[in-house]
Nucleic acid binder design. Sequence first.
RNA 1: UCCCCUGUAGCUCAGCUGGCAGAGCAAGUGGCUGUUAACCACUGGGUCCGGUGUUCGAACCACCGCGGGGGAGCCA
Length: 463
Amino acid sequence: MTPTIKELLSSKSEERPVRVKGWVRTKRQTKSAVFLEVNDGSCMANIQCVFSPEQFSAPALAAELERCGTGASVQIDGRLIHSPGAGQKLEVAANSLKLIGEAPAESYPLQKKAHSLEFLREIAHLRPRTNTFGAVARVRNRMAFAVHQFFQERGFCYVHTPIITASDAEGAGAMFQVTTLDLERIASQGKLDYEADFFGKPAFLTVSGQLNVETYCQSMGRVYTFGPTFRAENSNTTRHLSEFWMIEPEVAFAELEDNIELAKDFILHLVKVALEDCGEDLSFFDARIQPGLIDGLRKVAEGSFNRMSYTQAVKELEKHVDQFEFKPYWGCDLQSEHEKFLTEKVVGGPLVVTDYPKEIKAFYMKQNDDGRTVAAMDVLVPRFGEIIGGSEREWRLDRLENRIKEGGLNIDTYKWYLDLRRFGSTPHSGFGLGFERLLLYVTGMTNIRDVIPFPRAPRQADF
RNA sequence: UCCCCUGUAGCUCAGCUGGCAGAGCAAGUGGCUGUUAACCACUGGGUCCGGUGUUCGAACCACCGCGGGGGAGCCA
């Protein structure tokens, strides 16, 4: 394979013959030189390829050069040299040019100018060719790898939980139904028989791998999932997707405190890796997307991570009632405005909130001795609020059964889940981290549809 | 699902009280002794989102529909 531009630009600057393959970002010409900037996605920087007058006055090369506009794919042979120009250390003194795929300027949607994110969303197949989306793709890739590194280094086992599920696992949200039944025929005949469906009963896309991964937690000890998750909520916001990627670790013999430690270490690890390995891309985000981004991440990496109980948080909020649209009170769900206030105004950084009222949390969370709260923990971050939701799990059979009944859930569908408490039960804890929300946090991007290659949302499933 | 904003050239937008369709960038052409969001000059470029209505006259006003954005709720 041809060396990448990243490799070329990071090589020692002694002169040597090189070949460049990539896509033209911009062409500039003067009487004395033609400059072609080429990018291949390996890094933010382009490589500048320079053609001298004797070359671009040759008819064959001139004709090729003519058609090398923004977006064209090219192969250039030349010498890697110290650049006499000001903007770059190295450049390619080109000997030859091969136009591989033309991109006619009249019809190619991307121009050598800034485009709005809204416009680029409409051309999701071409937007990775822009600086912004190239950077997002590289950071996303590095963060995905860092997720695995973090858990693998700590002896976690990566478990593949199912995408298709036959039970509404935890009531975490509206589900997409999976069926092979002919809906149009059902609509016209008015007859519905799930016996005839593929699985012999209703089936759905998973809203969480947690319940499944708990089974492996109760044999492997430290486990995690990292896969696609689906919510059919009619959510139209900058932080919700219908299809997103979620990371869910689960640890046996771990209590709430262990869980909080793990979550903190996890976030710290990811932020540090981003700062260390994605510097060029983060600098771009800092300059063009979110001023102050890098400073904020550095502060986090230095370990400023606050925590308070839900009860303390509500007390804090009650001091500033006049600033909220929704009045905070003990027992209320924390609103977006409350979460933002806590992270941005009260602590000025990420915040762990623990021990929520049981009424506003899921049935599987461990009930505290006070009888009114559960051992839950949410990690909130400035700019958009909740990034992690987790808890110690209720591992006592009778308590868990009671909660299922109280919640009006069908106990039969949880039989296998309750078996985990019936046989060799252990205290255990885990959390869920929305991968795209992490990316929003690390990149400073503000719309979740811009940190996943092909966003799926209500009325949006193009490409 | 609810609330608010918005839709005009390839892109970003201006268009006053209803009276001839505009700018910047992009593109094309020419110029320019190394440019780097290159620069300078010139040129071409329009279903004013769609429909209906009001009016002598609608990009502009009204109604309906569609698209986009932001906020809220649900959550990760």
